[in-house]
Design a protein around this nucleic acid. Structure first.
Length: 438
RNA sequence: CGGGCAGUAGCGCAGUCUGGUAGCGCAUCAGUCUGGGGGACUGGGGGUCGUGGGUUCGAAUCCCGCCUGCCCGACCA
């Protein structure tokens, strides 16, 4: 993309309403614009990030047998009356009426809908287990939206639902998904620790939330250093291997972690003092096992091996995709701007032409740009160098390819790594090879 | 929902107390110079002062209602 033509309005000054770093940076870098309280428009670069996160989530869910569907945002009140949650959910649910005066709602979650879908389709134990998920906009009429997309009212969420025949199988699904989640967060470049959690309005008995460690997080967290030390690359935890996620189950059982609400002082005391870690965290995921709560209340049964009907055991699993955009920035930024992890960055690199109009610079830049017009953001604006440096740092591309008249004569370009700040001057082809554009 | 604050140009703000020509910086447009960390100069454009009512000769300014947004608290992906 050529920046001169891009719809990416960067701001030098900070909009007054933004109080925390991620919100300020998202507005300043031109990722989102607020539409009304807790509701945002995603601009091209922000949308790219959102999609990149969704892609990673999708890939990892598919790996463990998840099947993607897409359920609607608007649901009928009737469906929620069947589970009893229409009255139980409270004012957080946005209730709507259509022209026939039928009661509808903007979905805050989809347990009812997916249970109904499943029940109408699956009739035999032979078809289980099943794991369905979708990535869809949700609306919860939050008491107090704040912190930009971190607590919006409208938000983009991956919610997945597992159906198993027995308690044991359902718990296996639960830990398989927990492991998959840890891999997802790792790929997203953030450290997330699972912590025992309340089940809330979803109901059920087994629940963990995932907290991304970031100094500006909303919850205080306490955990055993063991969570920092797991070597995810080499531990061989494969969500597809029964043995492996049972290993994870063991880790969860023996490695303390809790948010302030669930903090257990006596358990904490048993963690050696030099192993205790604390900090703040942002909740980016939440998983639940709730057994037959919905299959029973909504009358969903399948025939078992012996021909007798049985209620499948369910779990539901959420990842706040839009919230993650904010959470990643909270965990990864500096004074100058965002520092995107490689896999989520809107562009792999910014290409800075420090002297547009200079024949050599233009030529060199066009050569580079033609290698990957989709993945490069070419700053071809006629602004001064300082503006480009600052905007590139602000937008946080992992790499900056800097082309100026000094080096251009010698066929050299400068490569700057945003995260480390390291710069190196390299011959053109060598630089491109380093970025995989050779 | 309780408590606090704010709405004036695209953004950041002053002006409101003490009523009398709507301002500043940045951005933007035209031009000249400049050219490796938000440059300089010249000239220009852009406003229902959130909104409805009231007081007044006269309201951004005083009074009342409403709307919207932000912050603190309880809740959540």
């Amino acid at each position: 993309m050529r920046l001169s033509q891009a719809f990416q309005p960067t701001l030098k000054e900070v909009p007054a309403e933004a109080q925390i770093a991620s919100h300020r940076l998202m507005l300043r870098a031109g990722l989102v614009r607020q539409s009304s309280s807790g509701i945002y428009t995603w601009l091209p670069a922000g949308l790219r990030v959102l999609r990149n996160i969704a892609t990673i989530v999708r890939q990892e869910q598919d790996k463990i047998g998840g099947q993607e569907i897409l359920m609607p945002t608007v649901q009928s009140a009737e469906l929620w009356r069947r589970s009893g949650r229409y009255d139980a959910y409270g004012p957080e649910m946005l209730r709507i009426k259509d022209r026939q005066d039928r009661e509808l709602l903007y979905g805050p979650t989809n347990e009812e809908m997916v249970t109904d879908l499943f029940g109408g389709t699956v009739k035999s134990y032979r078809e289980l287990p099943k794991m369905l998920y979708h990535i869809q906009w949700k609306f919860r009429d939050e008491i107090r939206p704040r912190f930009g997309v971190m607590r919006g009212r409208e938000f983009y969420m991956k919610d997945g639902y597992s159906f198993d025949l027995s308690y044991d199988e359902a718990v296996s699904s639960y830990y398989r998904i927990m492991l998959s989640y840890l891999k997802i967060f790792r790929r997203l470049g953030v450290q997330a620790v699972p912590m025992a959690a309340d089940t809330g309005p979803i109901g059920g008995e087994l629940s963990h939330e995932f907290l991304v460690l970031a100094p500006t997080g909303e919850s205080e967290v306490f955990y055993d250093a063991g969570w920092d030390e797991i070597d995810w690359d080499n531990i061989g935890l494969d969500p597809q291997e029964e043995e492996d996620f049972q290993k994870l189950r063991e880790i969860v059982k023996t490695t303390y972690s809790a948010t302030d609400e669930k903090h257990d002082l006596s358990a904490w005391e048993s963690v050696p003092e030099d192993r205790r870690r604390g900090g703040r965290g942002i909740e980016v995921g939440h998983i639940f096992y709730f057994g037959t709560k919905y299959t029973e209340s909504m009358g969903v049964e399948v025939s078992g091996a012996d021909g007798a009907p049985l209620h499948p055991h369910m779990g539901s699993y959420g990842i706040g995709v839009s919230r993650l955009v904010g959470a990643i920035i909270e965990a990864s930024h500096d004074e100058a701007g965002i520092i995107w992890p490689e896999e989520v960055a809107p562009y792999r690199a910014a290409l800075l032409n420090l002297r547009p109009g200079d024949e050599l610079c233009d030529q060199l830049c066009e050569t580079i740009y033609s290698r990957d017009p989709e993945g490069l953001l070419y700053d071809d604006r006629s602004d001064r160098a300082g503006v480009k440096f600052n905007d590139a740092d602000l937008m946080g591309h992992p790499w900056q390819i800097i082309v100026g008249p000094r080096g251009a004569k010698a066929g050299m370009v400068e490569l700057k790594h945003r995260a480390s700040g390291e710069r190196s001057e390299l011959p053109l082809e060598e630089a491109l090879a380093k970025l995989g554009l050779g």
